[in-house]
Nucleic acid binder design. Structure first.
Lengths: 212, 212
DNA sequence: TAGATTGTTAATCGATTAACAATC
DNA sequence: TAGATTGTTAATCGATTAACAATC
């Protein structure tokens, strides 16, 4: 899906632009952005043109302008509020993840069925799973991270979807399918490792062949 | 990159096949696999044909045969040994991740610069970063997970690559680029959430329009 | 002006799908 | 045999790139 890839690239452009701005830079060329994001300059301009992001012929792009246009498109007005379901190791790690603060992601609460994990006074608080629907509605949240063990993941996801969650980032070690009312993005860590390993071995195989 | 996608699909097919085998099933059709993996049957057969995986006209595929052929291609002979660099919240969570055991991924050790994190008696053990090269060579490891904070990630990655690591799965909240000797797969959690959120909002927008 | 960069169009490339002959 | 499924080819689809006129 290219729409997805286009948005990914725009998000990465935004991250780069924010860093450039902090460094005090004022303008940037498609060439610079492309190098920073790791794609071709033509593709950066193409992505921009899809959303009507414009610069100045000969003069590149004003970083401020580009950022405010990107923020309008990508929605950076309010922070992205997220719930975490499953407060085991991974869930807990994500509760206080450093990478979120800078990116405008805010973890509002965690949920678990294990009474020992509950702690409404922590920041973010951890509530019993029974409170999920209530908190979700009270805070108007539509995106959640799923981080339960494999055996409960599908069941829990169903409950979240029933409650009205529209997007799930799934860290459970089993891929889930979305549905008409809910998008699912699976993060399959074991699969990523095995995929990486395949190409590592492939590279070694071709190296050996060359070496001969 | 399709090669990457093809391998991902084959890995997912393998995972499905292993479950079917546990259930006592003997044969499977491209149709079944496709539904389980969430792609078209034609694509499953296409992926198979790229690697010469064959079944029986009219008779589908024998699960045992397919599994052993897939294992040959994807390399399931020995477990995939992995090191983790950075034993903060995320790194520690991955140290004992349940999803790895079943998939043949084995975390051999973790590393950190913080003396308080060191524990050579834990399973897996956590060593000082100074021991990285030694352990990597002793265990013949080529793939590692990077889970340090943003500010040290690039520097640490460089050290890992110098040491001879060939593949890095990067959980640090800053995308890294690979190089000729090392592949990098970035897991950018904030970006995944923002991407998901974009399409959630997009869906809501079109729903509203329909509602009118 | 001369030179450089954008914005966009057309060309290319590659992945997926459709379709069907082969065949069990 | 009749029917169903594979393996593969050709068609389609879509994303990326190349190229260049517009223009600052």
């Amino acid at each position: 899906m290219s729409a997805k890839d286009t948005i990914s690239r725009l998000l990465r452009c935004r991250a780069v632009l924010e860093k450039l701005k902090l460094l005090g830079m004022v303008k940037v060329y498609s060439d610079n952005l492309a190098a920073a994001v790791g794609v071709s300059a033509a593709l950066v301009r193409k992505d921009f043109s899809i959303f009507g992001l414009t610069g100045h012929r000969r003069g590149g792009y004003r970083i401020d302008d580009l950022l405010s246009q990107l923020n309008r498109i990508l929605g950076r007005d309010q922070p992205l509020k997220v719930l975490i379901v499953g407060c085991g190791k991974i869930g807990t790690a994500l509760m206080n993840y450093r990478g979120f603060g800078t990116q405008g992601v805010r973890i509002i609460a965690g949920f678990d069925v294990d009474p020992e994990k509950i702690n409404p006074n922590a920041v973010p608080p951890v509530y019993p799973m029974d409170d999920f629907e209530r908190v979700m509605n009270a805070e108007q949240i539509r995106v959640a991270i799923l981080a339960t063990p494999e055996n409960t993941a599908a069941h829990v996801a169903e409950r979240m979807i029933m409650a009205g969650i529209r997007g799930i980032l799934n860290f459970a070690p089993i891929p889930l399918k979305g549905g008409p009312s809910c998008l699912v993005q699976n993060i399959d860590i074991a699969l990523e490792l095995e995929n990486l390993y395949y190409f590592v071995r492939l590279g070694e195989a071709t190296e050996e062949r060359r070496g001969k």
